[in-house]
Design a protein around this nucleic acid. Structure first.
Lengths: 223, 223
DNA sequence: GATGCGGTCAAACATACGTTTGAATGTCGT
DNA sequence: ACGACATTCAAACGTATGTTTGACCGCATC
């Protein structure tokens, strides 16, 4: 059964509004109003608000992660670190991913949505997001380790994690940065932003692994 | 007029719960129950829920940014990039900042709160956060530019922005990473995490500035 | 010991939320 | 043309929210 027009407009509106204000702060009345749909349509088609959020994510995340996998597999035998980073970053930030008739634009709601939900991580999404990312993370970590044999896996995982944070924050707050810098940093040139990010992350990845600190601080979790 | 005990316990509870679930998803009833205070106390002492959120942030952010400024001023004449990055990262991630009788612990609510609200950025907080960060950002950008004369200011601002994203994501989702990597990446050794972050960011900062892309993509904002 | 006042409290307020209901509407195959 | 099924709709449901109210308490001060 293919998605009806109503389902699509609701998914689009969810993408936009969840990205804009977050999951908890978005009401279904506002959402269905923007979608031009009836309030009850959300429950009818997606079961609940949470079900809608998962559907919104799933619609885009699956193709993006598939493209990441494909680009990882398409790399040469001895890929540069930059090429690996690029395979991770570009499928998310650049257009090209299509679902139904709505291609993902670089500035579209979904980009910001990922930035938002990746960090907001409502409890009901944690397992879903972790499951989405686990296998892919290990694959990229493995590729990086082959390119950087001096780095342990933990260090590379941390750096992948930092990269995800940088991506998420950029996706969501690029406009803030622009405002903060009096338009010095423009967010309307996607290619330039991608290059900045790839350059920064590729260089960070190739840093030498830090030596474990001499004394261990008493056990405290960081978050 | 100094803060009463009630105000302090409410601020503490706000720190914890806003960090845990975000601003919109936290109810004042849950919050005041945890604080052992009456529901009406929030309106009485802070005016509103939004007023409370600002007070929670302000209590910690002012001393942390002051310490960042102090450490920046205390750097030698020709500081290394790593030293500058460290002056930015450590005041936020390491303990030592004290307000009233409650020191900021590395795993305390506030660390995660910053990670959360830095990215959630409810509309009413945007101007507040931007004002907090603007002057500090320019100072760090200036210091970086003196250490990296080949980099333009925009590139360094972007990298500072990436660093903020990496910090925020780490503060908030370190536990997720731990789970994702089957305990390979531990979040209970704060020193090690700080070293990972500093190492990664310092190296990323020193990357050569990317050449501006040949053709400009049509105007689209990224977020 | 009366008065004023900052602080606390239980209760109520109006509103907004996510979800459900049951009737109405459209759209197929036959 | 008709029955069946999927979809839409306005309305209502129960609950939870942020905020306000007005009585009450503990102390200082006069």
């Amino acid at each position: 059964m293919s998605a009806t027009a109503t389902q699509t407009t609701i998914l689009d509106a969810g993408e936009e509004l969840f990205a804009e204000a977050g999951f908890a702060a978005t009401s279904l009345r506002e959402l269905t109003a923007r979608a031009g749909a009836n309030l009850a349509a959300v429950s009818y088609h997606f079961g609940s608000k949470e079900g809608l959020a998962i559907a919104v994510l799933k619609r885009r995340m699956d193709p993006i992660n598939a493209e990441r996998r494909a680009r990882l597999d398409a790399l040469p035998a001895q890929p540069s670190v930059e090429a690996i980073v690029r395979a991770f970053v570009e499928p998310l930030l650049r257009p090209g991913v299509v679902h139904d008739a709505a291609p993902v634009q670089p500035g579209s709601g979904f980009c910001r949505l990922v930035g938002r939900l990746m960090v907001e991580q409502p409890p009901f999404l944690r397992d879903f997001l972790a499951a989405q990312f686990r296998e892919l993370g290990w694959r990229f970590c493995g590729a990086l380790q082959r390119a950087l044999p001096d780095c342990d896996a933990a260090t590379l995982w941390w750096r992948l994690h930092f990269l995800v944070g940088a991506i998420a924050h950029t996706l969501q707050n690029a406009a803030t940065l622009r405002h903060l810098t009096d338009d010095l940093c423009r967010d309307d040139d996607v290619d330039a932003v991608v290059e900045q990010l790839v350059q920064f992350a590729a260089s960070g990845m190739q840093s030498k692994a830090p030596a474990p600190p001499a004394r261990r601080r008493r056990t405290e979790t960081l978050g």
